[in-house]
């Protein structure tokens, strides 16, 4: 957008900072062309861009089952879900661009591994039960993360999250329904569900990030209204929601230390293997190379479509 050049007195930075702080303190939203501290802008770009990358890369594990879905109904549902994830990525790139990022450049940064995506998508989907477990656990964890982001202090991000959260509920429910159907099937199908739960449970808990003690910059993000709850708080919320759902489903969560703490009313889980998390995030997960290679191929092999559309638009230009 272009702004007409209005005569404005050059406000000094302290006054701008004061106005920004007051806006945050009043729980008002910061909008794209407001003055904002550089650290706030950069932290938001990091967060929003990598959230967008997670949505886009997140299409791949489930996309692998589109052609093998067992019925037309399941295929239509999975297609709609994967298409939603593409939409989520687009809403978020749109929000990142309001901060001065560039969409094509962000995609390049993903492909060149300068920016990351959620480590959860570096695990393979070995059986069709994985599709159900991803909807239930991975989208379930995403909902816990995303609901507080609807109140993010940055307007375009908060608005994108409201739209995304409306759609995530379908994602989780279709997954749980798929699992209920399989649990009502054969012993073999029940074993597939249990196996998928065994593989996805710990990576889902890792989605909430390292323990609070190891998150040095969290306090600043909290003060900026970018982060609303600590990693451990959100993880606890997820565990408390999920344990009864597992019981209803009839599956066992693969944590021998998991127990109910009657004093606090919370479920306490065992120790998480953070070395695995670091390894997978750094690029050493089972599927990192495959995910990036496919994203690179999508960019490069479709470049001719972009070029053709550009040429057509120039020829028939307005």
């Amino acid at each position: 957008m272009t702004a007409p050049t209005l005569e404005r007195p050059a406000a000094d930075e302290a006054a701008l900072q004061e106005h920004f702080d007051a806006t945050i303190a009043a729980e008002h939203r910061i909008e794209p062309r407001d003055w904002m501290p550089e650290g706030y802008r950069r932290t938001l770009i990091r967060q929003i861009a990598q959230h967008a990358h997670s949505e886009i890369i997140g299409m791949q594990p489930e996309g692998d089952w589109l052609l093998a879905a067992p019925s037309l109904r399941r295929k239509a549902i999975l297609l709609a879900k994967v298409q939603d994830e593409a939409g989520h990525g687009m809403y978020l790139y749109s929000a990142a661009e309001t901060l001065g990022a560039d969409r094509a450049d962000l995609t390049d940064k993903l492909i060149e591994r300068m920016q990351k995506y959620s480590s959860i998508f570096n695990y393979p989907t070995l059986t069709y039960a994985d599709v159900g477990v991803i909807g239930w656990l991975v989208d379930g964890a995403a909902i816990c993360n995303q609901v507080p982001l609807c109140r993010s202090s940055y307007g375009p991000y908060a608005r994108a999250m409201i739209r995304i959260c409306k759609e995530e509920s379908f994602h989780q429910r279709q997954g749980y329904e798929l699992l209920m159907t399989m649990m009502g099937g054969s012993d073999e199908q029940r074993a597939m569900v249990q196996d998928a739960v065994d593989r996805w449970w710990w990576p889902s808990l890792m989605m909430f990030g390292p323990p609070d003690a190891d998150s040095p910059n969290s306090a600043q993000s909290m003060a900026w209204g970018i982060k609303r709850h600590s990693n451990d708080e959100l993880r606890q919320r997820f565990v408390d929601m999920t344990v009864p759902q597992a019981q209803f489903l009839g599956v066992t969560l693969p944590d021998p230390d998991l127990e109910f703490d009657a004093a606090t009313g919370h479920w306490r889980s065992g120790a998480i293997d953070w070395e695995e998390f670091k390894r997978v995030l750094a690029g050493d997960g089972p599927m990192n190379a495959v995910r990036i290679a496919r994203r690179r191929a999508a960019r490069d092999e479709n470049a001719w479509v972009t070029a053709a559309a550009t040429a057509y638009a120039e020829k028939h230009g307005a």
């Binding site: 997670s54 959620s118 993360n145």
Partner: peptide, 16 residues
């Protein structure tokens, strides 16, 4: 962990 990895990556923690 040297860098901050926050849960605010929506679909999972990302380095910030």
């Amino acid at each position: 962990m040297s860098t901050d990895v926050t849960a605010e990556g929506g679909h999972g923690a990302v380095p910030t």
